[in-house]
Every structure is written in C-alpha cells, then in structure tokens.
C-alpha cells in the first residue's frame, strides 16, 4: 500500500507536467485548430534561459521570472511571424508550419548554444527529500505537484472570471461569432499563445529541475507525450487534456514500478498500447466535445 501511495505521488508529479504541456497544446488547438509541435522548443527555451540566468549569478526568483517570461514572449512572436500568415489554412499546412518552426528553433539551439547538454545548477536546497511516514517526497516533486495545482486553479479562474478568458472559451466553440462580439480575433489568438507559452515555460522549469540540464532536444519527448495525453483526453477539450496528462503519467509510473524487469525496455510501447486500448473504446477521447472551426 505504501509503495502504491509512493508511486501515486510520482504519478501526480509526472502526470502534472504532462497535464500542463497537454493543456498548452489544447488551448491553442481549441481556438485555431493548430497542433503546435514547436511547443517543446518553448519548454527548452525556459530551460536555457534558466541555465544562463543562473550562470550569470542572477537571484533565483529573478531567474525563474525570466525563464517563464521568455517562452511567453517567444510563443507570441511565433504566432505573429509564423502562424498568423497561415491562419485558417488546412490542418496539414498548420501542422507542417509548426514542424518547421520547431526544426528551425532546434537548429538555432544546436548552432548558437550547444548540441550538448548545458547544466542548470538548481539550488542544493531543492534536492532534499521530505519524509511523511513511510513516504519519500522529493522537494522538487512536491513543488511540481503544488505548481501544477496552482497553474490549473489559476487558469480555471482566468477562463471563468475574466472577459478575456470567457472570450477564449467562446472562441473555442465558435471563433467567427466571437468576432461578431467586436472582440479582436488577433487578441484572442495572441492570448491563447501567451498562455500556452506560460504553461510550457512552467513545465520546462519543472522538467529541468528534475534533470539538472537542458539540451536542444529536451522538449521533444515530453511534448510528444503531451500530444498523446491531449488525444486521450479528446483533442481541443481543456479538461480532457489535463485528465489525459494525469492518466498518461499514472500509466507510465505504474508500469515502471510493476512491469517485470525483462519488460522494462518496452515500457513506452506498453504505455502506448494501453492508450490505443483507451481510444478503441472511446475514439473521440475521454472528454471530447464537438469542435467548430470556422474563421
């Protein structure tokens, strides 16, 4: 039982990071029908900014603020430069554009920073472990769980209590009609990208804090996982993305803990098989809703 609880904490921590990333993908997809594969590079950007800010001996809180602000800014610039010109184009065009943005950023990271991992010297105080009875909870892990909870609560408040947030929910249902309210389409889309950048930045910091380094490919795998999570949840559904993220984290952690040793190399394959099983029974995802995409 204790082992199960321990694994549950691990699952919450990993699943929470997937949930933040999946949410970032879903926020943008729900509004303009774009799956932004450059989301991973937003995450990586947060890691690099953190690494350089700490290397420059900036105070830790300032480093965090810069590391989260940079991907927000980059996401907004990305939308303005790369995605706005193709807005309303076919899903394939949007997808290819996002692959291109992702590839360009990765090459820039490799050529102008380094192809090798850059260390991110997190403060030693973060590497401790809290013991609650028989449970060992890493400090970074608990920060990760708490941050996820805080981000989800904050986003819920934003979406339900502010005009901009309600406009985003409305845009996810019917973008053209939001424009009929006199709300600027570009503003709504830019807000969605800023939020996705914020979520990617926070997820990137949590990721880097656990690994201690950042490299050009860092964002690729977690965002692929987040994409899977968003699909399990029902692409375009925000609650679904969060549920899918936690479910995928849970599956991975539990497989890691209980698969026979000989099977461990195939952990991801088994996880994906379980995902396929979920989709066989609910092809539209766990919490799918109809998406109206009209511009």
């Amino acid at each position: 039982m204790d082992i199960f609880l321990q694994q549950l904490l691990n699952a919450l921590s990993l699943g929470g990071t997937y949930a933040l990333l999946a949410l970032g993908l879903a926020v943008v997809f729900s509004i303009i029908g774009l799956i932004n594969f450059a989301h991973g590079e937003l995450m990586t950007t947060a890691g690099y900014v953190m690494a350089f800010a700490l290397a420059a001996a900036l105070p830790f809180p300032l480093a965090i603020i810069l590391a989260v602000a940079a991907p927000v800014l980059l996401a907004v610039v990305m939308e303005r430069v790369a995605f706005r010109p193709v807005r309303g184009a076919s899903g394939t065009t949007l997808l290819l554009t996002s692959f291109a943005v992702s590839a360009i950023l990765r090459v820039l990271f490799q050529n102008f920073i380094s192809a090798r991992p850059v260390p991110v010297p997190m403060p030693a105080a973060l590497s401790g472990v809290i013991n609650i009875g028989p449970l060992h909870l890493g400090i970074i892990q608990s920060i990760s769980i708490a941050t996820t909870a805080l981000m989800l609560a904050g986003l819920t408040l934003f979406l339900n209590r502010t005009v901009a947030g309600r406009a985003m929910r409305a845009a996810a249902e019917d973008f053209a009609i939001v424009r009929l309210m006199g709300l600027r389409a570009n503003g709504v889309v830019a807000t969605a990208f800023a939020i996705s950048g914020l979520l990617a930045g926070v997820a990137g910091l949590l990721w880097v804090a656990q690994r201690g380094s950042v490299d050009p490919l860092m964002g690729f795998l977690p965002v692929l996982k987040a994409f899977i999570a968003a699909i399990i949840g029902g692409l375009g559904s925000l609650t679904g993305a969060v549920a899918g993220g936690f479910l995928l984290g849970f599956i991975e952690v539990m497989l890691q803990a209980w698969l026979p040793e000989a099977w461990l190399p195939y952990r991801d394959a088994v996880a994906i098989m379980l995902v396929i099983a979920v989709l066989l029974f609910r092809p539209q995802g766990l919490l799918a809703r109809k998406t109206v995409l009209k511009l």
């Binding site: 005009v163 309600r166 406009a167 929910r169 409305a170 053209a176 009609i177 309210m181 006199g182 809703r289």
Partner: peptide, 19 residues
Amino acid sequence: RRIFPTLTVAEHLLLGGAK
C-alpha cells in the same frame, strides 16, 4: 443562432457587450 453551448446566458451578454 450560433450560441456558445457551454457558456452561460450571463456570459453571452457580457461578451456581446464587449465593445
């Protein structure tokens, strides 16, 4: 009609008056 199914009536009026 093209209403937003998951938004409340009050939210429709709020967004409608956004200008």
